Simulated assay, not measured.
Amino acid sequence: MEETTATGGTAFDRRRFLGLTAATGAGLVLGSGLVLTAGAPALAAPVPTIHPTSEWGATPAAGAIQMLPQPPTKLFIHHTDSPNSTDYSLQHAYALARSIQNDHIKNRGWVDSGQQFTLTRGAHALEGRHRSLEALRRGDEHVQGAHCYAQNDFAVGIENEGNYMTAAPRAEHYAALVELSAYICAQFGIRAYQIYGHRNFNATDCPGDQLYAMLPRLRADVATRIGGDPTPAAWTTLRAGATGERVRALQYQLRAHGATVIADGSFGPGTESAVRTFQSSVHASVDGEAGPQTWNQLHRQLARGSSGEAVKAVQNQLNAAGIPVGTVDGAFGPATESGVRTFQTRAKFPVDGVVDPRTLARLTA
């Protein structure tokens, strides 16, 4: 069942963003080009206390909860954009969870709370959407949420109580966020550098300027607990007038999402129009430039067995980097996997043959 939002402000008009949806939605390609594969962290993480929906009085979901047969590959951090309460009790946490669920079902038309998990200013962690705790404990499934347009098949979300535009989270709240994030990443095999703010994908100020500024620290703190490198992908911004293989890779990525642009390596009016159309379709900032937010939305993790235009982008870039993989045919076979591994070795990245955001960003740098 596809979930779409109701328009208009509410008490939890979180992230000041309209049109949020849990569905794959416009611009999202789900086909042979999609492979969700995460590298398992080296270390386990302590199990935090997470209060299930049955404990805080959740109403039954208004529709079927979609359980996807693969784990998420990203963790998104949100804020509720609501008052910074000084009631840190568990009872307040329960009431907050009920309020969010009521808003999301009755005012937004979703089947349940949009996010999988909620973290309060009192440092209480709660299950948001039904079955999210079940999926987390298993580690090999994902409950489709409704917290970030065009990313809900790939990302698990933590909703942090409060407004963090000018205020920072309480120390206790932040410590609990590290603990919960580390456990989620360890269970699902999400690397620390795949922790994002909502604004990294959609046109929104979520999770607030102060909390967003703390994400590098959060990634580092999570990496300390589960291992790995916390450095996120460093995308190169491309704009009108640019030329070369990086532009061709962008054009292939746009074609993977349905654009009819020609992959000629020239960022002309046709490419700019395709970028704007794509940005609008995924509710990203519409500026006609392919910056980090646009690249984040364009990229779908690729591995052996993937196929399509996005694979051509990888193959073309590997050839341009002096790592010959043969014909640019869009089939991610043994030669392409070997080329990706060679490139990852040179870049001193984890060598797994999977093209995640960091690998593609370095390829196109």
Rank of each mutant, 00 (worst) to 15 (best):
E159I: 11
D87V: 03
R129D: 00
A284F: 10
E172M: 03
A38N: 14
Q101S: 06
A331Q: 15
A11G: 15
A223M: 05
V222L: 12
D352A: 14
S99V: 11
P169Q: 10
F12E: 00
D209M: 01
R137E: 09
T118Q: 07
V282W: 06
D329S: 09
G157H: 05
R217L: 03
P230N: 09
V35W: 03
T53S: 08
G258Q: 06
G189N: 03
G197W: 07
E179I: 03
G268E: 03
P350G: 04
A168P: 00
S54H: 02
L136Y: 08
D221N: 12
Q344A: 07
V351C: 05
A365T: 09
C206Y: 07
G63F: 03
R217D: 13
N200M: 07
F76W: 06
S132P: 00
L126D: 00
R304Y: 05
A176E: 08
I77F: 02
Y164G: 00
T24S: 13
D140S: 10
E172V: 11
G326S: 13
L177Y: 07
A249E: 11
E245T: 15
L68W: 12
A220H: 10
D87N: 01
L360D: 03
A331K: 13
W295K: 05
P71N: 06
T80E: 01
S54T: 14
E2D: 12
A233W: 14
A347K: 06
F349H: 02
T345G: 15
P52A: 14
L298A: 04
W235E: 00
W295L: 03
L18C: 04
M165Q: 06
R219G: 02
N296G: 11
P324Q: 08
A335G: 10
L90E: 13
A175L: 13
T224H: 01
T24P: 14
A64W: 02
D329K: 04
H173C: 08
G288N: 11
Q70P: 01
A155T: 09
G31K: 09
H124P: 02
N316W: 15
E127A: 08
E159D: 15
V178F: 05
E337V: 10
D87P: 01
F117Q: 01
T336W: 14
Y196K: 02
T359N: 08
T118A: 10
R219A: 04
A223S: 07
L363T: 09
D229E: 09
F332R: 12
T21G: 13
A42K: 11
G25L: 11
S280Q: 10
T4Y: 01
A290T: 08
A365P: 14
G265M: 04
T21D: 15
W56K: 04
A95D: 12
V178N: 15
P350Y: 09
L238H: 03
V328P: 04
A123P: 00
A26C: 14
S89M: 06
V351D: 05
G27V: 07
A64F: 05
A135H: 11
L18I: 08
T294H: 01
L126E: 10
M67V: 07
A303H: 10
A290L: 13
D209L: 13
G228D: 01
N163T: 10
A22K: 07
P230C: 06
E172R: 06
S266T: 11
T236W: 10
F332M: 04
A6H: 14
S89C: 04
R358A: 11
S181H: 03
G265C: 04
